[in-house]
Amino acid sequence: MKLNFIMLSALIALTACSSSSTGRKQVMLFSESELDQMGASSFEEMKKTTPISVDKATNDFVQCVASAITKNVDKSVHQGDWEVVVFDSAQVNAFALPGGKIGVYTGILNVTENEDQLGAIIGHEVGHVIEHHSNERMSASKLQNMGMSAATTVAGLANVDNQELWMAGLGLGLQYGVIMPYGRSHESEADIVGQDLMARSGFEPQASIKLWQNMAALSASSGQSAPAEFMSTHPSNETRISQLQEHLVVSMKYYNAKNSPGCVKPAYIPPPTK
């Protein structure tokens, strides 16, 4: 009985509170000021531990694309200027943090062929911030820890046989049944929000589809075997491409080629110094 109450309470918590711009229910247990402070602190730490690119052409290109994107982000998301840093790393990655922080690794510039594809990347990452995904993920993790702690207490009171096995099964259920799908919904939402944002910023929204085709080709060429979508916090490349293609008819309404910022990708991106 108590266990059922706990699971019901968790379910209510995960389906209540506010909604994202796409209508998805959200739970956010932290204040925006807390998230901004965490984002700023994490960003400062990264700048201390990760080399920063000093190549002017590379920085100018990334700054140009990021500036075009952030101009179209509502001020309610972040007041003031966004800080954009190009990290000198082979990682094929980029990120955005609460508090107006954007990081782009030089490695991803070898996958993005032009300003439009980099606009898709930065639009996607900023989409996570717009939709408060960091707050949701931290809140989901907190709820998971609370649920596991309460379930452990219930199991002890009920003298459940094979308690360790039972708890391990519950943990897997929470991971694959709640946390991972939660992550996949964030990624899909950021794809769609990012596609609309890049279109409003003057970048061709079709480029988001080509970007993920490039990502799929990169994975295939490297011989990496991605886990089944059920076992992953990210949608498969095929799922992302399909969703972006389906949403293209919407994002194209926001696109005007005359608004292109004209950011020029350098012909040569220096390899990481380390």
Score class of each variant (00 low, 15 high):
residue 7 M to E: 01
residue 11 L to K: 06
residue 15 T to A: 00
residue 17 C to V: 01
residue 18 S to G: 00
residue 21 S to W: 04
residue 22 T to W: 00
residue 24 R to L: 00
residue 27 V to E: 08
residue 30 F to C: 08
residue 31 S to I: 06
residue 36 D to A: 10
residue 36 D to K: 13
residue 37 Q to I: 10
residue 38 M to I: 06
residue 40 A to S: 12
residue 42 S to N: 01
residue 42 S to L: 11
residue 49 T to F: 04
residue 50 T to L: 08
residue 52 I to A: 11
residue 52 I to E: 11
residue 62 V to D: 07
residue 71 K to T: 10
residue 73 V to F: 09
residue 73 V to A: 07
residue 75 K to T: 13
residue 76 S to C: 07
residue 79 Q to Y: 12
residue 89 S to Q: 12
residue 90 A to Y: 13
residue 91 Q to N: 13
residue 93 N to R: 12
residue 94 A to Q: 06
residue 96 A to G: 10
residue 108 I to A: 03
residue 117 Q to R: 09
residue 117 Q to G: 09
residue 121 I to H: 03
residue 125 E to G: 09
residue 132 H to E: 08
residue 133 H to R: 02
residue 140 A to N: 05
residue 148 M to F: 02
residue 148 M to K: 04
residue 150 A to Q: 14
residue 150 A to P: 06
residue 151 A to K: 04
residue 151 A to F: 00
residue 152 T to V: 06
residue 168 A to D: 14
residue 171 G to L: 02
residue 172 L to S: 11
residue 176 Y to K: 10
residue 185 S to F: 01
residue 188 S to G: 08
residue 190 A to C: 13
residue 192 I to E: 05
residue 192 I to L: 15
residue 195 Q to H: 10
residue 196 D to N: 15
residue 200 R to I: 07
residue 202 G to Q: 09
residue 209 I to F: 05
residue 209 I to E: 04
residue 210 K to G: 12
residue 221 S to Y: 05
residue 222 S to K: 15
residue 222 S to E: 14
residue 227 P to L: 05
residue 231 M to D: 12
residue 239 T to M: 11
residue 239 T to E: 13
residue 240 R to E: 09
residue 241 I to F: 02
residue 245 Q to P: 09
residue 248 L to H: 11
residue 251 S to A: 15
residue 253 K to D: 15
residue 256 N to I: 01
residue 260 S to D: 13
residue 261 P to C: 08
residue 262 G to E: 11
residue 263 C to K: 06
residue 267 A to F: 00
